[in-house]
Amino acid sequence: QEPLTASMLAAAPPQEQKQILGERLYPLIHAMHPFLAGKITGMLLEIDNSELLLMLESPESLHSKIEEAVAVLQVHQMSESSHKSA
């Protein structure tokens, strides 16, 4: 798969840009967190496209962002379940 560039992304409509980024991010995230990949990808798509492009080029920054997202997701899920069980 050829690397995604800013000009390739800019050629697509805004809504489709997130779709394209998501399709690139998902398999990378799935390799690390198969059960949370969809949710984590959804979270990361909140980030600016330019930053997402940089993350796709830099596995280290992508990995740290994924771990950050997992931590946020776990806290969120814990607070949701404590609300429900209260």
Partner: peptide, 26 residues
């Protein structure tokens, strides 16, 4: 007033149109 945070974050599904954040400004 109910909270809508239960479904956060929206889940990305490969091959399906992404409409998690419809209010993105170009």
């Amino acid at each position: 007033s109910g909270s809508s945070s239960v479904n956060w974050p929206p889940e990305f599904r490969p091959g399906e149109p992404w409409k998690g954040y419809p209010n993105i400004d170009p």
